[in-house]
Amino acid sequence: MKGRTLGRHVKEGGKNLVRNGWMTFASISAVTIMLFVVGAFLLLIMNINEFADSLEDDVEVRVFIDLTADEENQSELETEIQDIDMVQTVDFVAKEDGLESLITSFGDQGTYLESLREENPLNDVFVVQAQDPQQTQVLAEEIQTLSYVDDVEYGADIVEQLFSVTNIMRYAGIVLIVGLMFTAMFLIANTIKITIIARKREIQIMKLVGATNGFIRWPFFVEGLLLGVLGAIIPISALSYGYVKLVEVVQGTPELSFLTMTPPNPLILQMGGLLLGIGAFIGIWGSMMSVRKFLKV
């Protein structure tokens, strides 16, 4: 195809958008709403995934050493733990260090805990990390059976619950997104079908003077593409702006410091690219669907 012809097709496609004002508006709105929900879900799921991943990495078994154990018993226990296959690292945290970090973590209010230094209520602790976070539970149970172990603590059950929540959200998100995509596609197909009915005569004449199907299809291709891309602009800009602001707010609020948010860069670029792609795809697909049967003149 020659460049001049492409120019003509783009012009024709654009003209159609304007000519079918309200239907164009309806289709673009449908795409906009759909992509907005898709984008929001995407950001949410990405963040939950990231949060879950970071929690998973943090999963460790805290082995509280029996207060009666002397140093020899402790090092015996350490070797025993290290001999377990699943173990990656074992760190010893003396009760003095444990208290120190506890005090620091309380910040200004930590001074109230200073008195505890007189009679430290904490245990010495082994912090054990499993090679695979999924093995944490088994590992913890095994360590529990060793001697000189007062207690073990691990957060795996929390992580498991979190993962089941993310999975449910992921599936719900996919179902919702697919449903919305079909709605938007149906609306676009309908819009273009109406424009085609109005242009049926024109298509018939084009065919009579020897226009190929490709030639006739092009303006509709452009029209569908424009519907999809225009529909993607608002959700992309709104979600990008909103997300950057949200991350700023979360990071600026100490009470929310436990939330690790996925950094906006490159997440919003990926999200934008994906929404643009989905928008363009359903626009083109919707329009090609409806042109098909009109070409059999």
Partner: peptide, 18 residues
């Protein structure tokens, strides 16, 4: 078919102009 149509001119009763 488009190639054939280019070799045949067709005129109708109702003109079929745009």
């Amino acid at each position: 078919i488009p190639l054939l149509r280019r070799k045949i001119g067709v005129v109708f009763q109702d003109f079929k102009l745009l």
